[in-house]
Amino acid sequence: MTPIVECLVAFLFGSVAGLLMQRSRFCNTAALRDAIMFKTYRNTKAMLVAMMILTVGFTGFMSVGAGHPLQFDVGLNTFAGLFLFGIGMVLAGACTVSTWVKAGEGNIGALWALIFTFVGMFLFSLVWSASWWPPAPQTMTGQINAPALQLGFANAQTLQDKFGIPAIVFGLAQTAFLALLYRGILRRERAQHAEHEKHQREHQKKKAARAAAVEV
């Protein structure tokens, strides 16, 4: 595919994704934040469903060598970077996806978050140019690199190559784990619902008792 076609396909995908997210109010930040802060799971469940479908799809195609998996070394910076990101997204009330979606709805705060995401990236480029860490893609080896705090590269494909078991088998195991998480959330929601109904019934009873007392 020529770069122009790639850009067009990407724009089309982005447009559909943006439309679906706007209509569903899906937000990655809410998927994590609401589960942690409010014990509500509307977005968490949607995220898990997507991850299950994708795990089966990606590892299935990777079993036959199809697809374009990401390839770069990971390490301490992967954890640390997303840790900072996690704090930032809760404070900003939006992540990389919802900043674009909310900006499209006319949310000036989201646009502001986006501008400062760009500024943060530029600041990092200055820090990197002084520290040269984490290693640039050209110097990545795919192997453990202890001095640079890098663990190298591994995914379902490398597991398949190493153990001779198709990638999809590992994918199905991960999907089963995600399904268990999903079931756990459903149970918790049912328990919350039952608790809520119990409270309401008690409240009604008290109200009725009070009304009866007044009548007497």
Binding site: F85, T117, M121
Partner: peptide, 8 residues
């Protein structure tokens, strides 16, 4: 938040 996201 934006700065932390971009940097991260």
């Amino acid at each position: 938040g934006g700065l932390l996201m971009g940097f991260g």
